[in-house]
Design a protein around this nucleic acid. Structure first.
Length: 723
DNA sequence: TTAGGGTTAG
């Protein structure tokens, strides 16, 4: 019989807990917990295991819990501790992402002769990844079996999860295959494992198998499946999942709606995605970001920005998605502006953001900002993974900083084929062809399989170093030795290689025999060879081929004009100029970028818009006079305007790279390297001027033009005047 | 006396 008194206390203090312990049920913070702790000490309740459990559980599982406090209380318990208490501590360490502490707890527990139970292993294995160590995971797997929990479904699920987090899908699958008491979570765990490893086909296969086994999927299964459809852009299966949800076989929730929307967005079906978005009762930051990145993927930057601006809250993923959007449409300066805004709002960027910003820096040649990002990553302990490493290498090379790129490469603990390809390509365009090929050999020795992009780098290295024989050999061996079929870009490289080296007939043969239709890049490469070797006939043929499919291609007209001018074919030049005027074809304006104190300055030919314009022109005038004293005379061979010699010379003076160069000389201290990025090929006169500047003012000048780098030092250029 | 596993956006 329960007395009246007892039943009153039951209503007052639910669960029959004594007053201080009851308070824990509603405890909100560590401050409150400590007060309750004091009361239990005063009242002597602390000696009861239930009090110890309640207090420690709060510290281990509550959002505001504190593991240090938990450990303090745990250590104060002198009598033998229950497995429950040990499990709670292990769980707490998993919650705060310290699985290593959890392992030490477990080892101490064994030392004190406490046996693990079926709860111990799931808590222990949670959050295990490659960093914690696969070998440790395997040992714990052994323990679980030894203690008799090898066929417990919770333990098995935890093991599958652990192996998949360690990237060991074969091990995960082995556990899955022998599991006899699979439940839907088992299926979900293995499916998400394959998703994590980007093996989306397996995801689909497993889903079919799951249905055949009569297992009813949960919303989590469908989210994973939709995620796979999104990555595979498999609209068909995606729509099937949508129908399945609509038939109410599964109750929808926010995550599922987000995943569905993402699937449609990834498949380019933004109408459907937006319709779902508009009908959603509650939206979170992921819903909004999904729409933003959906428009980003379609290149609809204005719509993406519109949604981005309307977001009620944004996190680092949203900002990165928008920054990425600007990269997609080649608006690199806008990407940097957005990054600065993000910084001003104190939103912490992650490694994805860093890769995006480094890409923008690479494109703009913004070395100072790039360096700043590198320091930021180091200081703020941003995850420095292989993607960040690759982006840093690319940024350094595209800024002409070879040694620093090599230093990043040497310091990388893990390299993938993109790392090697970035090295090969970077060394090649910076004029270190032989080192690039050395890298390629090293890559093969490291058993990394080259792909088609790697071979573009290899052929490019041969081209820039004028290594024709090697190029021919690599081109032949890419199929025979590594099974990489040459595509049109590889043929373009070969034509470029042969053309530059003056083997124009052989280049024509290559084009004649290629298995696919040559595109404008292939013909353009031939045209470039003709410019270098002054071959008017082949040039006219190549130009004709490009203009047939692209009659308004200004670059082709300009190139042909250059060739006529350098061959002194004035009549042909005159006719071509007429035809250009008639068709309204204009030369792409030359544009040069130079970064100064973290700001990217842009100059076009004849630019007077810069705030320091007056000073720049005065400086340029002074430089040209200095150079003349040193023996410079303008090279007007590439100026094809129908004007007098003097006017031709002043036209040359306004070239954007000269303006950038003058600006660089004004704004940087003596001895500092000047780096310029130019959108077109550097002209012969600017090349001559840069060489002399490097000698006369003892300055290293690095110019990246449309296809390669020019490192000017002591009066000569790394391209050996061959570009 | 109490506890367990799986999911979405760049």
């Amino acid at each position: 019989m329960i007395s009246t008194k007892t039943s009153t206390s039951l209503t007052l203090f639910s669960h029959n807990l004594e007053p201080p312990l009851f308070l824990i049920e509603n405890c909100k913070s560590m401050d409150q917990l400590q007060q309750i702790h004091c009361q239990t000490v005063k009242s002597g309740l602390i000696r009861k295991p239930i009090s110890q459990n309640k207090l420690i559980s709060f510290c281990c599982t509550n959002e505001s819990g504190d593991m240090n406090h938990a450990l303090q209380m745990f250590n104060q318990i002198s009598e033998p501790k229950s497995v429950f208490l040990w499990n709670t501590m292990i769980k707490g360490y998993s919650r705060v992402d310290c699985p290593k502490h959890g392992i030490s707890m477990y080892l101490n527990m064994l030392k004190q002769d406490v046996k693990p139970d079926d709860y111990t292993f799931p808590f222990l294995l949670k959050g295990f990844d490659r960093d914690v160590g696969l070998s440790c995971g395997k040992k714990l797997h052994g323990h679980a079996v030894k203690f008799g929990f090898g066929s417990n479904v919770f333990v098995q699920n935890a093991l599958i999860h652990m192996y998949s987090l360690c990237g060991q899908m074969e091990m995960a699958r082995a556990v899955f295959d022998v599991s006899c008491k699979r439940d839907v979570i088992t299926w979900n765990v293995i499916i998400t494992g394959y998703n994590r490893m980007k093996q989306y086909d397996e995801t689909n296969k497993l889903f079919d198998e799951m249905e055949r086994n009569g297992m009813v999927p949960t919303s989590v299964t469908l989210v994973s499946l939709l995620s796979a459809c999104s990555k595979l852009k498999d609209l068909e299966v995606g729509k099937r999942v949508h129908k399945y949800i609509q038939k109410c076989k599964v109750e929808s929730n926010l995550t599922l709606e987000n995943a569905l929307m993402d699937m449609y967005a990834a498949c380019g079906e933004m109408d459907v995605a937006v319709r779902i978005f508009d009908r959603m009762k509650t939206k979170d930051v992921i819903s909004w970001t999904t729409i933003v990145s959906g428009f980003v993927n379609k290149g609809e930057i204005d719509l993406a920005r519109d949604y981005f601006d309307r977001m009620p809250e944004r996190d680092y993923v949203s900002w990165t998605a928008m920054i990425d959007g600007y990269l997609r449409v080649n608006c690199f300066k806008e990407a940097l502006v957005l990054f600065r805004e993000m910084q001003a709002l104190n939103i912490r960027p992650d490694e994805f953001t860093m890769v995006s910003i480094l890409t923008a820096c690479a494109q703009l040649g913004a070395l100072q900002i790039g360096e700043w990002i590198k320091t930021y990553i180091e200081r703020n302990k941003v995850k420095n993974d292989v993607f960040v490493g690759n982006a840093l290498i690319d940024m350094y090379f595209k800024c002409g900083s070879i040694e620093k790129a090599q230093r990043v490469f040497n310091g990388m603990p893990w390299r993938d084929k993109f790392t090697w390809t970035a090295m090969i390509f970077g060394l090649a365009i910076n004029g270190h062809g032989e080192e690039a090929l050395g890298m390629f050999s090293e890559m093969l020795r490291a058993s990394i399989k080259p792909d088609e992009v790697t071979y573009i780098g290899v052929l490019c290295a041969c081209t820039h170093a004028g290594m024709v024989d090697e190029g021919r050999k690599f081109f032949a061996s890419m199929t025979t030795e590594h099974g990489v079929q040459p595509n049109v870009a590889h043929y373009g490289c070969m034509v470029d290689l042969l053309g530059r080296a003056g083997h124009l007939q052989e280049a024509c043969e290559v084009i004649k025999n290629m298995p696919m239709k040559p595109n404008s890049i292939v013909w353009g490469a031939l045209l470039g060879g003709c410019r270098l070797h002054k071959d008017v006939e082949i040039a006219e043929m190549a130009a004709k081929q490009i203009l047939e499919s692209d009659p308004d291609n200004g670059a082709v007209y300009v190139m042909l004009c250059n060739i006529y001018a350098s061959c002194k074919r004035w009549d042909s030049l005159h006719d071509l100029r007429e035809s250009m005027m008639h068709r309204g074809i204009k030369k792409t304006p030359g544009c040069s970028l130079i970064e100064m104190n973290g700001v990217v300055h842009e100059f076009v030919a004849g630019d007077q818009s810069h705030p320091q314009s007056k000073e720049i022109y005065l400086k340029l005038d002074k430089v040209m006079r200095d150079l003349e004293v040193a023996g410079y005379s303008p090279d007007t061979s590439e100026v094809f305007l129908d004007i007098g010699e003097e006017d031709k010379q002043s036209t040359l003076c306004w070239h954007s790279e000269k303006l950038a160069l003058a600006f660089g000389l004004i704004c940087s201290r003596p001895g500092v390297t000047i780096r310029i990025v130019k959108n077109l090929r550097m002209c012969v006169d600017c090349h001559r001027v840069a060489k002399l500047v490097s000698k006369l003012y003892d300055r290293e000048v690095i110019v990246r033009d449309r296809t390669r780098f020019h490192h000017f030092r002591h009066g000569s250029c790394s391209c050996k005047d061959y570009w």
